[in-house]
């Protein structure tokens, strides 16, 4: 019975992805991509990875879809290029072969490498009980530090290149009542996800994405200016995540003699503090990446 559900879900995902890649009209393709993202999130819950499923639903389907929709009209019209059948066919054969090889390699190496016992062994020293948060912010905090660095670089690149301004004044008067209900709820959900992240599915990235959604609703309702001081403050908040992380890492170096090795008995306080800073910074970064403001934005 559950196998039937899995197979139906897999067919749905592949169908939506094929529609996203094949449909001629851009808006329809992006809509199919967002549906595929939500179905993928559902399938990852089936694979026992609810943390990742939350992130995929909020960031992979929601924010990426919003970014693509924003750009769909601005990028010039599609210029159909005639690609010959030999090229199409050989590309299809090569990509299918590559994907099949990958799947075969993974399927045949089942059970060789597993970090599960290693993580379970040291979980009590990490200060949190959700293994994914323990890996992200304690065992492999280096990866997360560099990930925040990537976000900051993208923020600086988008701020220096700049994109055209989005005109929210055409959205009309319904956005404000919507914001009045939705923004407080989203702030609540975001704080809940952040606090929950130490023991249950959730964490800084999911909370940051939800908070970014709240920020976008506020901007769309026209109550936050998209120029001047507000943008400068948002930029400082966005870049502060990297600064907080580096300061925490250096402080841990001084206290324990190991880079990013938090003192074990108070590790939970360190992780929650870093995650709270990261949530705000990720939210500000994602909002700015969507708005694409630069100092000399073209209007």
């Amino acid at each position: 019975m559950t196998a039937v559900f899995d197979i139906l879900l897999a067919i749905g995902i592949l169908g939506c992805a094929a529609a996203a890649l094949a449909v001629r009209e851009r808006t329809a393709a992006i809509a199919a991509f967002m549906v595929a993202g939500l179905l993928v999130a559902l399938s990852w819950v089936r694979l026992g990875a609810p943390d990742v499923a939350l992130a995929e639903a909020a960031i992979g389907a929601g924010l990426t879809g919003a970014l693509l929709l924003r750009s769909a009209r601005r990028l010039g019209p599609v210029r159909p290029r005639s690609v010959g059948w030999p090229v199409l066919g050989s590309a299809a054969i090569l990509s299918a072969a590559l994907a099949a090889t990958l799947a075969w390699a993974v399927a045949s190496s089942r059970g060789i490498s597993s970090y599960q016992s290693l993580v379970a062994e040291r979980l009590s020293e990490s200060g949190v009980t959700n293994p994914v948060t323990a890996v992200l912010l304690n065992f492999r905090a280096w990866d997360t530090l560099l990930e925040i660095a990537v976000l900051s670089v993208a923020l600086m690149l988008v701020a220096s290149v700049g994109t055209a301004r989005i005109r929210f004044d055409r959205l009309g008067e319904m956005m404000l009542p919507c914001a009045r209900i939705v923004v407080p709820l989203l702030v609540l959900v975001s704080g809940h996800l952040l606090w929950l992240g130490s023991s249950d599915p959730g964490g800084a990235f999911q909370a940051g994405a939800v908070l970014a959604g709240a920020g976008l609703v506020l901007v769309m309702s026209g109550h936050v200016p998209t120029a001047g001081r507000a943008v400068d403050i948002a930029r400082v908040v966005g870049l502060s995540g990297l600064a907080i992380f580096v300061i925490a890492a250096s402080a841990a170096q001084v206290l324990t003699g190991g880079f990013l090795q938090f003192p074990p008995d108070v590790a939970k306080a360190w992780i929650i503090a870093i995650e709270a800073g990261l949530t705000l910074s990720i939210a500000a970064t994602l909002v700015l990446l969507f708005l694409g403001l630069s100092r000399h934005s073209r209007s």
Binding site: R170, L171, G172, M174, M175, C178, I181, V182, L185
Partner: peptide, 24 residues
């Protein structure tokens, strides 16, 4: 209940926004 509330609010707002964009 929170889920239903959010779906209702977002559904009403997006419906209004799409209809408004079409009218304009």
């Amino acid at each position: 209940l929170l889920c239903v509330l959010l779906v209702a609010v977002s559904g009403a707002t997006t419906g209004h926004l799409i209809a408004r964009a079409r009218l304009k």
